[in-house]
Amino acid sequence: MAGSDGVSALLKESGDRAARRLSFGGLELAVDALGGLWVESERALIVSDLHLEKGSSFARRGSLIPPYDTSATLATLTAMIARWSPRRVIALGDSFHDVGGAARLSARDLSALSALQAGRDWLWIAGNHDPSPPPGLSGDAAAETVLGAVALRHEPSLRDARPQIAGHLHPCVVVRGGARGVRRRCFAMDGRSLVMPALGAYSGGLDLFHHAFRGLFDHASLIAHVMGDGGLFSFPAAALRR
């Protein structure tokens, strides 16, 4: 299959598991194994679905799950920002698990987030969990944006023919092997769409073959860049179908 030849060639030239380099929609990207996308030309780091304060959102409703998810998620974000030193950070929506999330940030997490924002542009793209920008935090807000020819938005669009980078769906895959396979988050991409994994520590995944993805990808050229513990592993998605 021509598609596979193309991607296998692509993989050969990007052996580094910590950050896989590839082009998409005319952008040169590095896929960071921690869950972000680095756009060298714009010095921009794209992340998605941070779902900050999901823990306290549950606590509010009586499930007192450990209050460490925001710190854990911010720690991952901090590591990526330290690696790339971005001029811009673009968060593709659902940055907070609910509208009141920002107000519940602990003093420590708030200062950690502020430190990350200091000295760089920050764009909060609206998500379904956080339709309005987080009150009291710096940064710009937008419904969507573009980088070069690529649209950046929360929910992937089936109609817009432009290449797009989106989040919302929390893609993950199960890779066979071992006793019962390994289930991990992944970046899912074909020629037109790139759907990012959720970064939030408590954000669950949705199987790439769930009907919510229906119609979005061309399965013959769909690649899953799977987030292992020590780096990325890449698969032709068709081979992972169960």
Binding site: S8, V175, G177, G178, A179, R184, D229, F235, A239
Partner: peptide, 23 residues
């Protein structure tokens, strides 16, 4: 049969095998 190995080892093996098949 159960393999007590790490998730990454499983991913690496599967990756190699699937790419071999695909190409």
């Amino acid at each position: 049969a159960v393999y007590g190995e790490s998730a990454d080892a499983i991913l690496a093996e599967a990756e190699e095998q699937l790419w071999r098949e695909a190409t």
